[in-house]
Amino acid sequence: MSDLRSLYQEIILDHNKNPRNYRAMEDADRSLEGYNPLCGDHYTIYLKLDGGVIADISFTGSGCAISKASASVMSTVLKGKTREEAERFFVLFHDLVMGQRDPAKNLEELGKMAAFGGVSEFPARVKCASLAWHTLKGALEEKTIAVTTE
């Protein structure tokens, strides 16, 4: 059970059950779909930009607890951040779920994202955790073709 709890931490279960910023954004400046063809996880990320700042961010879609919680936590972390900060968080999160950053040693920097530290021990689930982040990156880069994790 202990290793399962390291994957399904309270923050993740909470964000899965009550996803934050879970809504379509009518007046979004950018939106992009992302999906994982193997699992069927499928989300749309919406962004409202104010100069170089993410003024608002939301998402819709469905998938497993890891993918949904990841999208939800991401939205709370990035709201009000600059584009450069968002890119920095992308790298942090990526390194975390790839097992290249010890959550215990980077707690301050990671904040809520540290809850995804257990994912690296479940290689089959890394794509679930990173789907929303890759989609966000695509949206910031003004991609128009849906992002996939394959």
């Binding site: 399904y8 059950k17 497993c64 607890a65």
Partner: peptide
Amino acid sequence: NDVHPHDVGTILDR
């Protein structure tokens, strides 16, 4: 109900 199949699969795998 309310649990995605992939989460079920991961828990069963353990």
